[in-house]
Design a protein around this nucleic acid. Sequence first.
DNA 1: ACCTGAACACCGTTCAAGT
DNA 2: ACCTGAACACCGTTCAAGT
Lengths: 208, 208
Amino acid sequence: MARPRQILLTREKIVEAASALVDAEGLDALSTRRLATELGVQGPSLYNYFATKADIIDAVADAVIEQVDVSAFGRFPWAEALRRWAQSYRAVLSEHPNVVPVLAQGPGRRPASLAMAEAVYGALVDGGWSYAQATHIGALMRYLVTGSSLGSFALGFDVDPSLYEVYPHLRHAPRLAEHHEAVDEGAFELGLDLLITGLTARHEMGTR
Amino acid sequence: MARPRQILLTREKIVEAASALVDAEGLDALSTRRLATELGVQGPSLYNYFATKADIIDAVADAVIEQVDVSAFGRFPWAEALRRWAQSYRAVLSEHPNVVPVLAQGPGRRPASLAMAEAVYGALVDGGWSYAQATHIGALMRYLVTGSSLGSFALGFDVDPSLYEVYPHLRHAPRLAEHHEAVDEGAFELGLDLLITGLTARHEMGTR
DNA sequence: ACCTGAACACCGTTCAAGT
DNA sequence: ACCTGAACACCGTTCAAGT
């Protein structure tokens, strides 16, 4: 039984199954053997479609970025466009927190990530920022979006209450987990507001 | 040969060797067998000192956080203390970029991380911020510090120049790698400045 | 108490088949 | 061209030894 009577896989099917697995159980749950089983196939079959497991993960990550709405960049001034893009970016990443560690590493050579970076830099440069400043602003936005989408600031505190007896100000930390989405979204909105307000002020002052 | 004529390991020796390995070759290079070899010992021996590999990594991460200078919190008003702490935090993380993904997940139950969080929240609350606001500000600082210390914003672009022919605004992206520390530090300083300036303004307006 | 070899249940990847 | 079983060189972890 070592033959294909018919094609069983496509790149799309593999990416779809891998995305579902990562979303449901995390990056660590994604193994080539496990993924293959999920697809009714043997492990090595995947290598007919992807050179390495890292390439599969890259495809999963790029599929997430494809969902980000960059259309604001044509339709609004740079500050408003930046705000709308960042909000869409965060909304998408929040639905796929397990993929965020991959995206936090940078665009790599993923097409959707590069196209998004191109749109952001283009809009900032068109808006009057220098390339150096646009680079800083783009980086800053990525810190904010990826940081708040890891979704783990609140969850990152262990839930064992006895842990916090020594730390008076952290007494309520384990209860953060109950509304962790609100905490991370609140921090994101605060940061976005401070950054855009501050950048707008500098832009108007000509301090660029 | 299955006996200890004398003790070969301590927790400290293990953490030291693990830190060196992670700093030099990255988290993926840290395997229990490899680490044991480095220590002149067999893999299972490590389990006399740590319950799991994850616990070893936690100890490595906490040793990094121990180096962060939190002394500013007693000596300066909240805004200046926050700035000094964030700069020390980033300086320490920049020397250990491979550990940052662990720290980005949150404090967990690591003592130094919890003590640092306690110091930050205490200072903010003493400075007049509500617990809810202090939580947002603390989260925001972590996004900024961990994001910029991944050190990979600039490095995250693939170096193959032919990749960028389609993206006019990214033409110079591969050359970012040459001065990636400066890019990430610049983005961090810009973000820190915008956040602290904005927070100070809100604090003075009583908008807390 | 601490270190060992052997073992278990996994990995990512290669490759010579087979159709 | 695509799928397979077998194999290679790894993993983290457990456990019954041995001292």
